[in-house]
Each structure stands twice: as structure tokens, then as C-alpha cells.
């Protein structure tokens, strides 16, 4: 009798936790939607500089964006390994994903540092307020994802039912991909279109 291992009965066949994370992500769409909309409403409305075109370094942010995108690939490999119950590969790809997330956060810290030295603070103008709050909340989501992935990594050293572990990792993966997709939108709308237009 192994209660921790048995798969619960559900009316749809989808595990409760997986359904819950999908609902959470649906709600998060509205959350980031409101943040990005606020940024766009205030775009070009700042009375004093610095302005986006003074600061954005597209090649640099392209690199950090690429790293975050590739971390989704690592995440997929971690989920696949967990589903094949391959513990070694699971550990490897969980670690790679978390490290890539950390690297992205490092780029963000560098960018913030650079911007602050160039005079862009939270209080200086509307661009500063909207930029830091929007990207800051995205960064906080990445940071939570890194903590989550690290916990799952540590958890691989405990005896857990493999099916349950695969589900745990799959759910974290859904969250991770979502956070990536939000960044694609922010990168496109804020960085690429923001400077080019």
C-alpha cells in the first residue's frame, strides 16, 4: 500500500496539480498583460531622460534572451529524462536549466546596474517606473523558478515515486516555459519594437 505513489482519480484524467498550474498561468497572463499594457500606455510619455533609446543594448539583451530561451530546451530535456526515470540525466538538465536561469538574472543585474549609473532610477521618469517594475516582476518570477528547480534538484537525492517526480518536474516546467514566453513578449515589445519604432 503506497499512498504517496498512487495516482489520484480525477474526472478529467488530468492530475489536480497540473490543472491548477494551468489555471495559475492563465491568471498570470492577465497579471503580465496588465504590467506590459501599463508600460505601453506610458511609452514615450516621459518628460525627462534617460529614454529607452539612450540605454537599451539590443545585442547584449539578445544574448541573455537566447540563454533564457535555451533554458526551456534544457527544461524539456529534464522533463523527458524524468519521464524515462533516468535520474542522472534529470539531475543534469535540472541543474543546467537553473544555471541558465541564474545567468539570465546575472545579465539583468548587470543591466540594472548599468541603467542606474546612467541615471535611470525608479523615480526619475515614467520609463524608469514602468521598466523596473515590469522587468523586476519578471525577474522575480525567474528567481522563484530557480529556487523551485533547485529544490527539485535536491529532491532527486531522496527516494520518491518516479511517476510523482516526473509530474513534479513537469509542473515546474510548465511554469518555466511560461516565464520564458513572457520574456519573449517583453523583449519583442519593449526592446525591439520600443527602440526601432
Amino acid at each position: 500500500m503506497n499512498h504517496s505513489g498512487h495516482v489520484e482519480y480525477t474526472a478529467t484524467g488530468m492530475p489536480n496539480r497540473k490543472l491548477a498550474i494551468w489555471l495559475f498561468l492563465a491568471s498570470e497572463c492577465m497579471f503580465f498583460g496588465a504590467l506590459i499594457a501599463t508600460y505601453l500606455i506610458y511609452q514615450g510619455q516621459s518628460l525627462v531622460g534617460p529614454y529607452p533609446e539612450d540605454l537599451f543594448d539590443i545585442p547584449l539583451t539578445t544574448v541573455s534572451t537566447f540563454i533564457l530561451l535555451m533554458s526551456s530546451l534544457a527544461m524539456v530535456l529534464a522533463v523527458a529524462a524524468a519521464q524515462k526515470e533516468d535520474l542522472k540525466q534529470t539531475r543534469l538538465w535540472l541543474a543546467v536549466t537553473a544555471l541558465m536561469g541564474l545567468t539570465f538574472l546575472g545579465f539583468q543585474a548587470y543591466e540594472y546596474n548599468h541603467f542606474i549609473h546612467a541615471g535611470l532610477t525608479l523615480s526619475v521618469n515614467l520609463f524608469g517606473s514602468t521598466f523596473y517594475v515590469m522587468t523586476g516582476f519578471h525577474g522575480a518570477h525567474v528567481a522563484i523558478g530557480v529556487i523551485w528547480l533547485s529544490s527539485l534538484f535536491a529532491h532527486t537525492f531522496r527516494p520518491v515515486d518516479p511517476k510523482r517526480r516526473a509530474l513534479d518536474i513537469e509542473i515546474a516546467g510548465l511554469y518555466w516555459h511560461f516565464v520564458d514566453i513572457v520574456w519573449i513578449v517583453i523583449f519583442t515589445v519593449v526592446y525591439l519594437l520600443g527602440v526601432g519604432g
Binding site: S27, M30, F31, T38, L122, S123, S129, V133
Partner: peptide, 25 residues
Amino acid sequence: IIFAFPSVTVGMILLTFDRLFNANF
């Protein structure tokens, strides 16, 4: 609830940044 609450949450977060950290929203 799950689609409506995030909007006011963002509004209140912006207000929090205005009030506590001198943002300009």
C-alpha cells in the same frame, strides 16, 4: 476571480511602488 483579480493587483502594486518607493505611476 482568476482573470479579474490580477488587474487590480497590478494597480495596487503600482500604487505600492508609488507610495513606498517614489515611483511615478
